[in-house]
Simulated assay, not measured.
Amino acid sequence: MTSHDAAPEPVRRTPTLSVLDLVPVRSDQTSADAVAATRALAQVADRLGYRRYWVAEHHNMPAVAATNPPVLMALLAAATDRIRVGSGGIMLPNHAPLVVAEQLALLEAAFPGRVDLGIGRAPGSDPVTSWALRHGAGGVEEDAVARFPQHVDDVLAMLDRDGVGLRVGGRVHALRATPAATGVPAVWLLGSSDYSARLAAERGLPYVFAHHFSGQGTAEALRLYRDGFRPSEHAERPTTFLTVNVAVAPTREEALRLALPQVQAMVALRTGAPLTPQRLVEEAEAAPVADAHRPLVEAMLSRWVVDEPVAAAARVRALAAEHDVDEVMVHPVASAVAGTPADRAPARERTLELLAAALGAGAEVPVGAAAHA
Rank of each mutant, 00 (worst) to 15 (best):
L205H: 02
E282A: 13
F229D: 01
G217C: 04
L189S: 00
S193T: 15
R230A: 14
T239C: 14
Y225I: 07
R252T: 14
A201L: 04
R203E: 06
L242W: 06
L190P: 03
E285L: 15
F241K: 03
L296C: 04
L199G: 00
E220Q: 11
A247E: 01
E233N: 10
R230W: 08
P277L: 03
G272M: 05
V297M: 03
Y225G: 00
G215T: 06
H234S: 09
D194F: 07
A265E: 09
A255M: 08
R203S: 07
P250Q: 14
L189E: 01
P277A: 12
A210W: 01
A259I: 07
V267R: 05
G191F: 00
P274Q: 06
D194G: 14
T240N: 09
G215V: 07
L296E: 02
R252M: 08
T240R: 09
W188Y: 10
L189Q: 06
T239R: 08
R230K: 12
P288R: 10
Q278H: 13
W188E: 01
D194N: 10
R230C: 05
P277E: 08
N245W: 12
A197I: 08
A290E: 04
V289M: 02
A292R: 15
E283S: 11
L242V: 08
T218E: 04
L258T: 09
E233G: 15
A249P: 01
N245Q: 15
T276H: 15
S232Q: 04
A286G: 09
Y207A: 05
E220S: 11
N245A: 15
L296M: 10
R279P: 00
L275H: 01
L256F: 09
E236F: 10
L190R: 00
R223L: 11
H211N: 12
Y195G: 01
P274N: 02
L190G: 03
E283N: 04
Q278D: 00
Q264A: 10
A273F: 07
A219S: 11
P288K: 11
Q216F: 14
H211G: 03
A249C: 11
V281P: 02
V248S: 11
R279S: 15
T251I: 10
H212Y: 13
T218L: 06
V281C: 04
P277N: 06
A210L: 06
P231F: 13
R252Y: 09
L256R: 15
D291A: 15
R203K: 15
H212A: 13
